[in-house]
Nucleic acid binder design. Structure first.
Lengths: 131, 131
DNA sequence: GTTTGACTTAGAGCCCGCTCTAGATTCTAC
DNA sequence: GTAGAATCTAGAGCGGGCTCTAAGTCAAAC
């Protein structure tokens, strides 16, 4: 047995139950969610695993439509590796571009921080000289 | 002379004229924009420089409200270095967190790409063996 | 003098990704 | 049996960041 309620999945993934239902509607699950008593969703470990993939992709800025596309390919089963590679490689490019942007920003911050720290240091020095 | 029209600034920064007006309204400029004939905006090199800072901060995900806050501190002139450092250091944390997320995603992609390439290679091998 | 084109304003519209609400159902515990 | 918690559906609402529109002004070119 490994039937998980939506609440349990929310807890384990860090997504809200709202977001879980939303993702399902958006087609981000590789399989239709089973339903238990009273029509309640029943997830399994595979769902958690796939959601973790989705979360990592989202965290790196992949739009929902692209995740859906990738999910569809996975859902369709083996034989579409070329398309899957296309999706992933395209995203890798964007991730690398983002990293570059972050790096640029980090440089800027470091530079500015040095300037401001310098000014503060200077002020301290002056204070020391006029006690 | 170094008076630039909004169109020229758009060209040089890569922002649209719409976005430039929008940023101005949002308080992202360190000084009120001069106006020339017919009330047209006249920018100078300093504006370009500051906009480039804003662009880099935005590209790293800093929200407009934070950029505005930082802009206000800069506009207020020296003496608030401590606050500026607060803003920048807080953002640096977020940038580092994002880099971590991107790194995680890159690992995932690399892993998946290897799997799919493996499957494709396998298929090629089989084809070679049954010519 | 009229057309073209770059500019002005205020404000509406849009896309994305959630996030929340309302009202109903059902299980669990007291 | 009744209260409370968790779930369900459909659909509305929201915040961020643009993006665009409409109606108007002005200068230069023809």
């Amino acid at each position: 047995m490994s039937g998980l309620s939506i609440g349990q999945v929310a807890e384990r993934t860090g997504l809200s139950v709202h977001t879980l239902r939303f993702y399902e509607r958006e087609g981000l699950l590789t399989q239709p969610v089973r339903r238990g008593v009273a029509g309640h969703r029943v997830y399994d470990e595979d769902d958690i695993g796939w959601l973790d993939v989705c979360i990592r992709l989202r965290a790196s800025g992949m739009p929902l439509t692209d995740i859906r596309r990738y999910t569809e390919l996975v859902r369709a089963g083996q034989g579409n590796e070329v398309e899957r590679l296309e999706v992933l490689r395209a995203h890798r490019e964007r991730v690398l571009a983002q990293m570059h942007d972050l790096d640029e920003c980090l440089k800027l911050i470091t530079e500015k921080v040095a300037v401001y720290e310098g000014r503060l240091g200077l002020r301290d020095d002056l204070r020391k000289c006029t006690p």
